[in-house]
């Protein structure tokens, strides 16, 4: 038996709006430890990992591990019926293949879960989520790839289009900067990755969920773009960098 009740449907709506373009169908794996969702995009170049912890719910009951295959667009459409501060309840009996109240059809999705090594990163940048979103959007009008370079001074975004290039440098802020403007950098050594902008732009749909975004990079490894939600936990997006031929 699974019974989840969330006082603020708005949060779940924002979560779904931020992932529904990247992934169409996915399994919500619910256990006593929380609800998680891990899925790759159709081109298998990007991946997202979502964790919703029990203490983010008003009521969380999960007697045994249950995996609910859902079409995220349908779930987002269904949740549109709820206003942001409505309470949303998700029930699922073990045997049934639907979740009640909206009778949404569940699907059997064979998803191959991937093991994400908890490796260290050469550079970790924390910056305002809205700034990162605006940079990705602006650069997306110029080129389709961005070279993100991190040094101890700051983080640089460079893109080259067929008619012009753009180079945005965000300097690390001094420790006294206010939280919402702070740009902090933890770095073992300078690192630079070339990434497809359309995926990064898709990741920034999660901007409404968090004030800050954490960007973790290691040479030759997928970049991690993480939005921490105050009580629910996190959404992490992974994107494989492009490699020169």
């Amino acid at each position: 038996m699974l019974e989840l009740r969330l006082t603020r449907a708005g949060l779940l709506k924002k979560v779904l709006e931020s992932i529904r373009d990247l992934v169409t169908d996915a399994n919500f794996d619910c256990a006593a430890t929380g609800c998680s969702l891990q899925a790759m995009d159709s081109s298998r170049v990007a991946m997202l990992s979502l964790l919703l912890r029990p203490d983010g719910f008003e009521h969380y009951r999960c007697d045994r591990n249950i995996s609910m295959g859902m079409n995220l667009a349908n779930m987002a459409r269904m949740l549109r019926c709820a206003s942001d501060d409505d309470t949303v309840t998700i029930n699922a009996d073990d045997a049934q293949d639907k979740i009640s109240d909206y009778e949404m059809k569940l699907m059997h999705i064979t998803s191959e879960n991937l093991e994400i090594p908890e490796a260290g990163y050469e550079a970790i940048v924390k910056m305002p989520a809205s700034l990162f979103a605006r940079i990705c959007k602006d650069l997306g009008t110029i080129g389709d790839t961005v070279m993100i370079s991190v040094t101890k001074e700051g983080i640089q975004f460079f893109t080259r289009g067929d008619i012009r290039t753009a180079n945005i440098f965000c300097r690390k802020t001094t420790p006294v900067a206010k939280e919402k403007e702070a740009i902090s950098i933890e770095m073992e050594k300078p690192v630079s990755l070339t990434l497809a902008l359309r995926y990064l732009i898709s990741f920034t749909k999660a901007t409404p969920l968090a004030k800050q975004v954490t960007i973790s990079m290691s040479y030759g490894r997928p970049i991690v773009v993480e939005y921490k939600m105050e009580i629910m936990d996190h959404i992490r997006f992974y994107l494989v960098p492009k490699v020169e031929e």
Binding site: M40, S43, R44, V45, A46, M47, E112, N113, L114, E115, I116, P117, T145, T194, A196, R221, P222, Y238, L239, V240, K242, V243, E244, E245
Partner: peptide
């Protein structure tokens, strides 16, 4: 030109 590898070549299947 640049190549775009897949994520499955970085993260093993569980």
């Amino acid at each position: 030109g640049s190549k775009q590898p897949m994520i499955t070549s970085f993260f093993g299947k569980v």
